[in-house]
Design a protein around this nucleic acid. Sequence first.
RNA 1: GCGCCCGUAGCUCAGUUGGAUAGAGCGCGGGGUUGCGGACCCCGAGGCCACAGGUUCAAGUCCUGUCGGGCGUACCA
Length: 557
Amino acid sequence: MPRDLLTQALSHALTQAQNAGDLPKSAAVEVELQIPRDPRHGDFSSSLAMALASETGRPAREIAETIVRHLDLPADIASSVGIAGPGFINFLLSPVWLRGVVRTALEEGEDYGRSNTGQGKRLLLEFVSANPTGPVAVVQGRAAAIGDALARLFERTGWAVSREYYVNDATNSTQVQRFAETLEARYLQQLGKEAPVPEDGYQGDYVVEMAEQLVAAEGDTYLSMSHEQRLAALSEYCLKEIVSGQQHDMAAFGINFDTWFMESSLHEDDQVSKAVETLKSAGHAYEADDALWLKATDFGDDQDHVLVRRDGRPTYLAADIAYHKNKFDRGFDRLIDIWGPDHQGHVRRTKAGVRALGYDPSRFEILIHQWVRLFRGAEMVRMSKRAGDIVPLSGLIEDVGSDAARFFFLMQSMESHLDFDLELAKKQAADNPVYYVQYAHARICSILREAEERGVSLPNIADVNLDRLEHADELTLIRKLADLPYEVSQAASRYEPHRMTRYARELASTFHGFYTNCRVLSDDADLTAARLALVQAALTALRIALNIIGVSAPEKM
RNA sequence: GCGCCCGUAGCUCAGUUGGAUAGAGCGCGGGGUUGCGGACCCCGAGGCCACAGGUUCAAGUCCUGUCGGGCGUACCA
C-alpha cells in the first residue's frame, strides 16, 4: 500500500535528518499519514513537522523542508511532494503508480485487498445468540449483519474465523422455565381450559401460535401429564422448535454458523461446576448469604456477582464463564463476542471471570451494538420479547428483502442507534442506497455484455496500454480502487464494518461519475481496452465490498 | 445515584485515531442524454458540530462539568 511506503520513507527521512544533525533527536514521534479533506492538498498528508515544531521550538515549515530534503521515495510513487499551510507535507500519487492499481486489482481478482495480519490464527466470533424463547428479532438481525461482515473482514485479513451461535438451552434456567410455563398456559387455553399466563411470562402472540401448532401436531398428548412432567416435555419441545426456527431465520439471512453451541452441553459435562471449582480454589470466589460469589472487584468490576445461587443452581454468569473457558480450550487465539445493548451490564463481570481464570484479557473482546428502533411511519415499535411486542427478523426480510436489511444494518456504526422505518424502506425501494450500489454493478456488467455483443474481446491486462487512462474521472476512480485494501484492514482492526458500506456507496458514486464522462466502448481500440480493464477492476472492487457486507451483486436488475 | 452509548444541515447519519475552508444520502431549488442501462450525472441553498470551561501550535474529535435522549444497574437471560 502506498500509505505504508510513504510512511516508511518519512520515518527514514526523519532518522536521516536526525543522524545528519539537521534535526534534534527528540522523543518518539509517530509518523502517520492522513488523507486530506481537500483533494487539492494531495492523496496523503503528514503533520509530522508540526508535531516536531512544538517539541523543538523551530518553525514547522522549516522542519518540513528539512525532512523533505532527506526524503528518498520509491520510484514512480508520487508525482509531487509539497509543503503547505502551517507545515503539512503533502504527497500526490503519480498516474504511473495509480495505473498499477488497475493491474493489481485485475491480477488478484477476488483476492484484491487481502492481507495476512492474522497469520492464519484462529478467531472465534460469537454473535446473535438469541435466547431460545422466540424467533430472532430485528435487533438481533443487526448483530447478525455486523457479525457476518466482521467475520468476512477478518477472513480477508488473514484470520481463520469460526462463527458461533450460543444457545441458552439450559432447561433449569429461569427464562426457559418461564417460557415453558407460558407455553403451558397457552396450550391449555387452546384445549379450552382455564389457565392464566404467568405475570412474568411471555406476552407475545407468537406463543399462542406455537400452542396452536403444538395442538395441531401433538393433540392433547400433554393434557394427562402432571404439571411437572408437562413442563419438562413442553420445554423440550419448544426448545427444539424455537432453535430450528432460529436456524431457519439465520439461513434466510444468509448467515452460516459453523457451530450452534448448546449451553446444556456445558452442564452435562460438568464444565460449569468445574470452572466454578477452579475459581474457588484459586481464591477468586467466596461464600456469602448462602450463595457463591465471584470476586469480580479484583478484576476491574465495581461489584461482585453470584456464581451459584442459594438453591444450588449456577447463574448465567457461571455458565458464561465456563463457556468462554471452553472457547479458549478449543484452541482459539482470539475471541470476539457481539452483544446487544441490554447486555452492556454483563461486559465487566464476564471479562472479570475470564481474567480470574487466568486468560489474557487482550485476547477477548466484547462488542456492544446499539438498538434498532423500528418505526411504522411516526410510530415507534417496541421490541422486547419479554414485553411481548416482538418484531421478528423474518418479517423484516419479507418486507424489504435480505439485501436491503443487511445494507441498512451496516450503514451506520454499531454504537449508534439505528432508526429503521419499515414503511419508508418498503415505499422507497427505488431510492434505497442498496440499489444505487447494485445498479453500478449491473451497469458494469451491461457494458461487458455490450462489448461481447459488439465482438470486442476483453483485453489481457498484459497487453493493455494503461497510459491511456489520463482523464480526471478515470484517475479518481482508480484512487477509489486503491483505497480498498486500507479500508478493509481498517474496518477489521477497528471493528467498523459500516466503513465497507460507505466505501461501496462512494465507489458506486465514483463509478457513475466516470461513466457519465468517459465512454468505455469507442472506436479507439487502445482506449477501449484500457477502459475495459478499468471497468473490470471497478467490478472486482464492488463485488468484494458487497460480498463483505453480505449483499448480492446482481448482473441485471 | 452509578455505568455504557448517543447529541453534527429540515430528516437519517459519516467524519480516516487531534490537522488545512465540517461531508454524504434523502428532502428542497435549478440544470443535463441524437451515446455502453436516466434506478444516472452536475450546480445551488441549508451548520454557534447540544451548552460551558480546560488541554494543545491545532478540538466535531481529548479532559471536566451541565442539559437532553436511549439502555443497563437481579441469586433473569
